[in-house]
Amino acid sequence: MKDTADAAQADRSAAGRLAISARGLAKSFGDTRAVAGVDLDVPSGSIFAVLGPNGAGKTTLMRMLATLTPPDAGSATVMGHDLVRAPHAVRGAIAMTGQFASLDEDLTGRENLIMLARLWGFQGRAARARADELFAAFDLSHAAKKQVKDYSGGMRRRLDIAASLIVTPGVLFLDEPTTGLDPTARQKVWRMIRRLARSGVTILLTTQYLEEADQLAERIAVIDHGRKIAEGTSRELKAATGSGVLHVALADPARLDEAAELLGRALDAPVHRSPEGGQLAVAAPSPAAANRAVAALLEAEITPADFSLGSPSLEEVFFSLTGRAEPQTEDTE
């Protein structure tokens, strides 16, 4: 009982403040520094995205915060509980949905949830009732009696998230919640995440999709090679990249290389090509500078089909932070 009293107090003290506060978290595997000293402050009740390419250390960071991997160095509190000294109390206040649907595939969906409900301490009828409630809420009642191995990817993901909500967690960890889902299933999961956040659950999610972080998260931490290289709201990150970005699309794509070189020289900044290759983006310190750059193109008789000066996309932010085109392309895991 003392344990619950302590937990209740910790809950109160965390309310309206930080759900997660980490300082200098580090973890190495052999010679690889997976996480090399990360500070993180996640406000209570927000959606916080950890964005980075594969192998950046996102999953390791999350596993440390979820008590699955002990950190080599650093400290953290989760919902007011010390990660290292009171891991059991942390576990009582969190739920984690890993990258792969962590369910027993031989059992039915309903049996999986009943099993977890019982592990949380719901007994007999209460455990079954909680499972049925979650099935109805997640629009899965029709599949409750099916073995999980017969579920589609989207259904698995929803069941997996449902399994994390048996007891409303203070913090819900979602490791790449929409990786491998089709667009419809992804939208469904996003809607679910937003609703959860609105109900007061703090959500920490990792993603390698810029769009996902942009769409969902109030704050974004960009992680690369185990370090946090930037943090802020999507707007702040974009603003930090520069006052504006000049976007140019060419009438004649064959001259893209030539145009990229000209723009880079004119504005003295790296030029980012959009994944499709048809568009160039380069930071411009002022409208006048952008104007001169476009003039340089016209002088070389390269005709832009379209050009504009605007704020950078999150993808371009990542490019300017890491010097790499886009997070998905780097795969070192």
């Binding site: 344990d3 619950t4 009582g92 019982r118 592990l119 949380w120 301490g121 719901f122 007994q123 209460a126 909680r130 409630e133 979650l134 109805a136 809420a137 997640f138 629009d139 929803r158 909500l165 048996i166 007891v167 409303t168 469904k188 809607r191 679910m192 609703r195 959860l196 109900s199 007061g200 659950v201």
Partner: peptide, 16 residues
Amino acid sequence: AVTPATLTRVERPAQP
């Protein structure tokens, strides 16, 4: 999918 009713905080039962 998720209706607010199911998300009214479900508290943890006594530790088993």
